[in-house]
Amino acid sequence: MLSIRNIVKQYAGHTALSDVSLDVESGQIFGLLGPNGAGKTSLIRIINQITAPDSGEVYFDGVKLNQSHIDRIGYLPEERGLYKKMEIGEQMIYLARLKGLSRDEAIKRLKYWFEKLEMQSWWNKKIEELSKGMQQKAQFVATILHEPDLIILDEPFSGFDPVNAEIIKDEILELNRKGATILFSTHRMESVEELCNSIALLNKSKKILDGKVRDIKNSYRNATYLIEYAGEKLFFDESQPFTLIEEKQTDDANIIKIKLADGASSNDILQYLIPKTSINMLQEVIPTMNEIFIEKVNQKPALS
């Protein structure tokens, strides 16, 4: 769908993107992650052809990005905004027509979406009369009205209450099911794990990690397990197939965090522990995206 090749973008005094390459496959939900100032917005602006890269190319469905692609992309910027004094219906039509829809088609689709998201009564309201959440909803509709193949969402859930965030999330998933590729940028890692198939992590203008979420998480597994057992506190010597990392005692249980010895499996732990105590829980500790994110970002650049 989208292939980004060796993008370099420099602004006077600093580099926003240095040699960034990544691929977004068709039908994916792709998460573009990174701390503030990492270059996410610069990259998104380049994909939207708002700015041009100093060097490097972007291919859209194998074709070098050009003006004809504009109508196939829907963009919800992080900083939302609409014309305050303009009526919402007219404004939506205007934005849709800028994306190449005819007036009639725009009205037809708007009716559908306004009904779906329960916004019918807003049609003649001015933006300034709407609450912030309502404005966000309207802007989301404006983003997807022209049924783009690629939907770029910059922090789509910021500004929504949990109920509306859920509605929007469902809509995003439905659009994705219907075939739209979604590229979204966020710092909210829980939504990444929930939604994204693939991610790319940007830091200080460089891509430091990318791939499928599952693969990344697998690669960050380090054979760490969390075990909760009942009864007397156990004492470990060197005979067990793991090393103890952490030990904690609660009112009726003991929790230990262990690292598996080389060549051992989780079954070995059970075999070792079952005769000694009653096990409440055994869980592999897989790092969350959040932890991976923090770990990667905090790594010294020299190491990577």
Partner: peptide, 16 residues
């Protein structure tokens, strides 16, 4: 200025 401060500019320049 209105387009800039209301941030609608980013949406518009992604279309034109």
């Amino acid at each position: 200025l209105e387009e800039k401060t209301s941030r609608i500019i980013e949406v518009i320049v992604s279309s034109v």
